[in-house]
């Protein structure tokens, strides 16, 4: 058995998975270097459009954020394959501990926040968490993070909105409409607005956090460039171009804005998804309704 795990085929497959985790990122960097227009100084730009596919109603643009989120998906897919490769009942590889830890953590998180009924949601929650966290962490490679594009995050928020509505409808459409008249019928318009405010606020929260981080990083970078040219600008020769203050200081900020904030927003997005979807469903009412229905069918 031990020999089997270290056999040549096993190692080749491992190397393939690792290569497939790294290659998409290199592809993204190469694509960015090839297509990025040469610009003077530091600029704040949105996602670049690579090309557009003509469509009958509206042209369909392929943007940087779409390509980068596809890269993230490929990386996560091969990462999952890698850590679950060579699993066995008796743990032989260290990566199996990591895989088991992730699954156990997510299971307990979902159980705690949504209840036993929603245990099937655990893969969805970890998928959305990983997608969001890895997308935000893409800035570390100098790529455009897809989460700072409202279209990507808005798509996830719309998905969550549909889930919420589905689980509210599960107790019957009459119950769903009755939910708008809580606690007083007079508040129905406000409840109706707050129904649509949920996805909007989720999308804006995530996108605003990531985008504000990159905007502040760019502003600080240009400010530090100005400061170092002010201090060293009068010196002769190459000394005037030494980026004295741009060394190191932006990296400290990047730890907060890119690493911490990105992971935190991923966690918060997943937590809010769990809370909204779990809160939209009333298990007691559903059980009563089901019991009534089955009693009716028996008669």
């Amino acid at each position: 058995m031990k020999l089997n795990k270290t056999s040549r085929n096993f190692k080749i497959l491992d190397a393939f998975y690792i290569a497939m985790m790294i290659l998409p990122i290199i592809f993204g960097i190469v694509l960015q270097v090839l297509t990025k227009p040469v610009s003077e100084g530091i600029a704040i730009t949105g996602a670049r459009v690579y090309f557009t596919i003509p469509m009958p109603v509206q042209d369909f643009p392929i943007t940087e954020s779409q390509v980068n989120s596809a890269i993230v998906m490929v990386v996560i897919f091969f990462f999952c394959l890698y850590i679950t490769h060579g699993m066995s009942k008796k743990i032989e590889l260290k990566r199996q501990h990591l895989a088991e830890m992730i699954v156990e953590k997510v299971d307990s998180l979902v159980k705690e926040n949504m209840g036993e009924y929603f245990m099937g949601f655990a893969p969805f929650i970890i998928a959305i968490m990983a997608l969001s966290a890895f997308s935000s962490l893409l800035t570390l490679f100098g790529l455009y993070p897809p989460t700072s594009d409202i279209n990507i995050v808005g798509g996830w928020a719309v998905l969550v909105f549909f889930l919420i509505t589905y689980y509210k409808m599960k107790c019957g459409p009459i119950n769903y409409l009755k939910g708008f008249a809580e606690p007083v019928a007079l508040l129905a318009p406000i409840n109706f607005i707050s129904e649509f405010a949920t996805p909007v606020s989720m999308a804006f929260r995530h996108y605003g956090n990531v985008l504000s981080g990159s905007v502040i990083s760019v502003l600080l970078g240009s400010a530090l460039a100005g400061l170092s040219s002010m201090v060293l600008g009068n010196l002769p020769g190459f000394l005037a171009d030494v980026p004295l203050f741009q060394m190191g200081i932006p990296a400290v900020l990047s730890i907060y804005f890119d690493v911490f904030s990105g992971c935190l927003q991923a966690f918060i997005f997943a937590m809010l998804t769990m809370m909204y979807v779990g809160g939209a469903f009333d298990l007691e009412t559903y059980k009563q309704k089901k019991a009534r229905k089955s009693a009716k069918n028996k008669q």
Binding site: F204, R205, G208, L211, M271
Partner: peptide
């Protein structure tokens, strides 16, 4: 800590609306 982070995220929403409008 978890609850506090959640609450902070919710409280931040109004600020982020302002940020989006500013951007």
């Amino acid at each position: 800590t978890t609850t506090m982070l959640m609450g902070c995220a919710i409280a931040e929403t109004t600020g982020l609306y302002a940020l989006v409008i500013a951007i």
